[in-house]
Amino acid sequence: MSVFLISSAPLDVQNYRTVIDETSKEKINKIILSEVIPLAGKSHGSIVSSVSSSFLGTPYQAGTLTGNLNTPEALVVNFNGVDCFVLADYVEALSRSHDQKTFLYNLVKIRYVNNKVDYLSRRHFFSDWFASTPRIARDVTPEISPNYIVTEKHLNRTSKGGEYIPGLGVIPRKINYIPQQFINEQVVNNLKIGDYVGIYSPLEGLDVSHVGIIVRHDNKTWFRNASSLAINKKVVDSPFMSYVHSKPGIIVLRAD
């Protein structure tokens, strides 16, 4: 059963609802104690890798966040089921935290522009992590490969001229991405553990179609992601090169 709390946003006097269940509360504390605190002093990417390992096997579940134009937004914490974007939110927030209170603080900062818990302030696009404030990560795509391409997007605009997120408006944005044909061993070597990788979308109104995290084990590079594929339906590690082989390209963000 969910617990409903009235909270204040960390950086202003805004009030909002926090929705969190007891299982998620327990997992927050467990992950911080076992995966974050012991790695104090290590690289942020190492902490991201360790924290994200705690979600392996978590069921894939879309639509866990609460809020739309007609429903007030709530700060949702639900570790029982995640999609790819929510997984990234949780992992990054946990990686910066030392207890439940700081986790909630960081989750607001990561999930919402200017720390405002509101549907239209939610970071709906992967590139919002570097293009809106406060900035969550750097776009390091140009550092990963000299063969990156810059493209002009009109995010949130559908092919029929409508909006994917009604009321958000159309967002002009330059997007850097590495086309699939240039994703080679050099690119893999330039990726760092804990990098967030978005699968580039050729649709004008979208930046990516999926998001995952770079991890390394068993002498291989893996794409840790909340997979909606019927054979998975959970958080898994997919071989990176095999995964991106048939994809249009990648965008790489680094939180450090």
Rank of each mutant, 00 (worst) to 15 (best):
N219G: 06
S242D: 15
K192R: 15
L94F: 04
P10D: 01
L168A: 11
V188D: 00
A226D: 07
V113W: 00
A62S: 15
H210M: 07
S238Q: 10
S43T: 15
V187D: 02
L39Q: 07
G57V: 12
V150Q: 12
V3R: 12
N106D: 02
A93Q: 03
N184D: 15
G161R: 04
N68G: 10
F223L: 11
V86S: 13
N184Q: 05
L191D: 04
I37F: 00
S46W: 01
R111Y: 03
H44Q: 12
V244P: 07
H98C: 10
S52H: 02
S145F: 02
T221V: 15
K234I: 01
S132W: 05
L75Q: 12
I144C: 08
N232E: 04
S8E: 13
F79P: 05
K234C: 11
T102Y: 01
N156Q: 03
K233V: 02
Q180L: 05
N68A: 08
L120H: 06
V117R: 02
L56S: 06
A74S: 15
I149L: 11
T23G: 06
L107S: 03
K25N: 06
Y16I: 02
N176V: 03
P202L: 03
P202R: 05
V108F: 00
G162I: 08
S8I: 08
D256Q: 12
M1V: 07
G63E: 04
V252Q: 07
K116C: 10
T71M: 10
V113G: 03
S24R: 09
R111W: 00
T151C: 07
T133M: 09
P146I: 12
Y105H: 15
R123W: 05
F223M: 09
K160F: 09
I47M: 04
N156S: 00
Y148I: 11
F126Y: 11
S121I: 03
E185N: 14
H210K: 08
M241E: 10
Y119H: 14
S43C: 04
P142H: 05
V187A: 12
D89M: 10
G67L: 04
S121G: 08
S46I: 01
G194V: 09
Y90T: 06
R157N: 02
L5M: 06
H210F: 07
T102K: 00
T133K: 11
S209Y: 00
V235W: 04
P239W: 00
L94W: 05
Y164I: 13
S54L: 04
G205R: 04
G81F: 06
T18K: 06
N147W: 00
F125I: 06
D99S: 13
I37A: 09
F126W: 07
L104G: 09
K116L: 12
S97A: 14
S227N: 04
Y164M: 10
S34E: 15
D218N: 15
F79Y: 13
N232I: 02
S50R: 14
G212A: 10
V51E: 06
T141Q: 02
R111S: 08
V215Y: 00
R17W: 01
P142I: 05
T133E: 14
V188A: 11
A62M: 07
I251T: 13
G249Q: 06
I149W: 00
P134H: 01
A131L: 14
F130W: 14
D12E: 03
P179S: 09
S127D: 11
F240K: 06
K101T: 13
F130E: 13
S238M: 07
V170H: 04
N232V: 04
